[in-house]
Computed example of a mutant assay.
Amino acid sequence: MKVAELREKNVSELNDELVELRRAQFNLRMQKGTGQLSKPDQVGKVRKDIARIKTVLNEKSRAGETA
């Protein structure tokens, strides 16, 4: 996921994406805990995507954009 793509989305779309990624992160944590995680690199990718979305949301809130 690229930051340029995220900046094109509005706040509600970003929030939906954030919820989806948090669910994916939870599922990956559960898989890791039970020893069923097949792609350990996915954990880091999801974390970074969440951070990117939060950064863009923060930028938009400082700029005064709303949903």
Rank of each mutant, 00 (worst) to 15 (best):
E59A: 12
L37D: 03
Q42P: 02
L18D: 00
L6N: 02
E65K: 06
G44M: 03
P40A: 05
Q42S: 13
A63Y: 00
M1L: 10
R52G: 06
E8V: 11
L18C: 09
L57N: 03
G33K: 14
R29V: 06
Q36T: 12
E8K: 15
K9V: 07
M30T: 09
K39A: 11
V3M: 15
G33Y: 01
L57F: 05
L37R: 00
R7A: 10
K48V: 12
E59I: 11
V3N: 04
P40K: 03
L21D: 01
S61M: 09
D41L: 07
L21N: 05
K45L: 14
S61A: 12
V46L: 01
R62T: 13
L18N: 02
K60E: 05
V19D: 10
K48A: 11
G44F: 01
D16I: 07
N27Q: 13
E13H: 09
N10F: 07
G44H: 01
V46Y: 00
N58E: 08
V11C: 10
V43Y: 00
P40S: 10
S61E: 13
K2P: 01
A51T: 12
R52K: 15
V3E: 15
R47Y: 07
E8A: 15
M1G: 14
L37V: 08
A67V: 06
P40E: 09
K60M: 08
E17W: 06
G44Y: 01
G33R: 14
K39D: 15
A51M: 11
A67F: 07
R23G: 08
K54E: 15
E17T: 08
K32D: 12
R47V: 07
V56T: 03
L37P: 09
E20A: 12
E8R: 14
E20N: 13
R23C: 04
R23E: 11
D41C: 03
G44E: 04
K32M: 15
F26P: 03
L28N: 03
L57K: 02
K48S: 12
S38Y: 02
Q31S: 13
K9P: 02
D16Q: 10
K48M: 11
L28Y: 00
Q31D: 15
E17V: 05
E17G: 05
V56W: 00
E5S: 13
